[in-house]
Design a protein around this nucleic acid. Structure first.
Lengths: 332, 332
DNA sequence: TTGTAAGCGTTATCAG
DNA sequence: CTGATAACGCTTACAA
């Protein structure tokens, strides 16, 4: 059932029917009613492909999964974020296009594809980096983007992120106030802006409390259990060991806890460990993990609505949203 | 840069250029080479919307997230599955369309939308039910579908699922062989085919070992921690209590373990608990959870390739793939 | 208020 | 082998 068929069955032209259906003003109430009624009866559905071709909009926002080759898959936080984005987009009749990065494809090529491929009206970029080639590319081409993670001040792209600095300042302070001042930081991969902010938060607190920092206790690691295990295992061999280890996410913290147990330390007594993200795995590990929590679903929704705002009005002001985090103190 | 522009710059017609680019035979090698070279130089990219409109194919497969209103979000298994599907689809230049079910929308309406909305060439249906209205709808309209979960024998739709019967037969047998014969089954929601198969597997083993089953120890529950906790808490009040509780997934099992601890039972000694899915949360809970594992990423890939097969040839035989599971015995 | 006709960027059918 | 020309189904000036 196409627009043409519907129009013919009503003895009207395609344009009139189109206008009636799309709520344009210049169509008589009587006609409009007739059209709408017929459309409903005959079960007419506009072909979205045709609409989009005509309008030059795809009504889709794409995001590239940070996964699969590394076999780490989606973190719980990311899947909540996806759900939030999905829900919000659907309110605007937009779709979420999820694509993965196949082994054989270079990441930038995939972005390039989206830029001049016309498959999406905008892109969500996750986990920004300090000198992010993706951002640079997208911005040069003026492709609509919302980032999860910061970008350079002079780059006119809207972003959203948790308050990484504040979160790590806070948790550092938490341990310091308990008299634990020998603290290690197992940060995320160095290029990520979130890692740098967390590091800054940690150092900020250490400075404020006039605590010395031990260089090789501050490490940039992969966000994996294994990386956490290895690094902790190494450090804990030394004569002097930290009283607390702050990890960049819960997964890494789980690995650190294993290493602590391995060398006979009681987590929550001899040594303390914290994570980030408030994943299930941390809630149920032993001892339950002290962590930093935030509402990833809400972040996803926000990314979607920021995107919609930008698409509907390209002059929308750039904004950098900062999301509150919450320290969840458990037994670790 | 459109096809027309490219053609003009080469003094050729659109059709010739199109044919050259799409690898049709009836174009001279010289021309083809010239066209391909120019296309590359000028950075020509076909507009996918136009291609799809002309071809009548969207090159997208949709799936509807089982989530968000319930705020349970995506299970780890499901996100791995998504990643697998995504990866495989991309090899065929297909996209994965992820949509959620907004609060205000009826599930069937959303499916209806996909059927006559022309937004996707096929649909992945997850967690089939016994009398599944979605399946019925899709099948009536002959919409291409691959199901995760069984369907009625006479319904001509391809499916893939883990071997639920076998898995639960096996784990039941595992406990029985250890002399634990008072076993409870906390199954998933009754309408799900997977619940019924697991129940059958459990009963099969109990029969084979000539063990009586206790009716009210066999319950259909939500796949949530809370449901597990409540149900276990109730049952454990009674004078006679089970020696083992088989749960429909790891999340539920976590709840059951909490309840056991609450009433002072030592899991792994006084009572045993198992899950399904091999989620992280089970690997790290205390004691580590005995569970049933399978390769969800591979399942996703398979669903994608089954879909591709069906789309490329509608006469492809219906198949029902069964995926092996693996019993992972830990301390619970 | 309605209709005509020209796009949107491809593919596909037929002549030549 | 190549080129018109008509789809695909919709939107949108511009006329009437």
């Amino acid at each position: 059932m196409s627009l043409l068929q519907l129009a013919q069955s009503l003895n009207l032209s395609k344009s009139t029917v189109s206008r009636a259906l799309n709520g344009y003003a210049d169509v008589s109430p009587a006609t409009r009613e007739r059209v709408i009624k017929a459309a409903k009866e005959m079960g007419y559905r506009p072909n979205p492909l045709a609409t989009r071709l005509a309008k030059g909009k795809t009504h889709a926002i794409a995001t590239i999964l940070p996964l699969s080759s590394s076999h780490t898959f989606i973190t719980p936080a990311f899947s909540q974020l996806l759900a939030g984005a999905c829900d919000e987009l659907s309110r605007y009749d937009y779709q979420l296009l999820v694509s993965s990065l196949p082994e054989s494809v270079r990441e930038l090529d995939l972005y390039q594809n989206y830029i001049d491929g016309g498959m999406a009206d905008g892109l969500f970029v996750m986990r920004t980096q300090k000198q992010d080639a993706r951002i640079q590319l997208l911005q040069e081409r003026k492709f609509p983007v919302i980032c999860h993670g910061s970008v350079d001040k002079n780059v006119p792209i809207s972003t959203i992120d948790t308050d990484n600095y504040q979160a790590f300042y806070h948790i550092t302070e938490h341990y310091l106030q308990q008299g634990l001042d020998k603290i290690a930081l197992f940060d995320g991969p160095q290029p990520l802006t979130l890692s740098q902010q967390r590091c800054a938060g940690f150092m900020g607190a250490m400075h404020a409390y006039e605590q010395p920092m031990i260089q090789h206790w501050m490490q940039y690691l992969q966000l994996s259990e294994d990386a956490g295990y290895q690094a902790a295992h190494n450090i804990l061999q030394e004569k002097e060991r930290p009283q607390a280890i702050l990890c960049a996410n819960d997964t890494m913290a789980i690995g650190v806890i294993s290493a602590c147990k391995k060398v006979g330390l009681r987590v929550g007594q001899d040594i303390f460990v914290s994570g980030y993200g408030n994943y299930d795995q941390g809630r149920y590990c032993s001892p339950p993990l002290t962590t930093i929590s935030y509402d990833a679903y809400a972040v996803g929704k926000m990314m979607a609505s920021m995107m919609m705002a930008q698409l509907s009005n390209p002059d929308t002001e750039i904004q950098h949203k900062v999301v509150e985090t919450q320290l969840i103190v458990r037994d670790s």
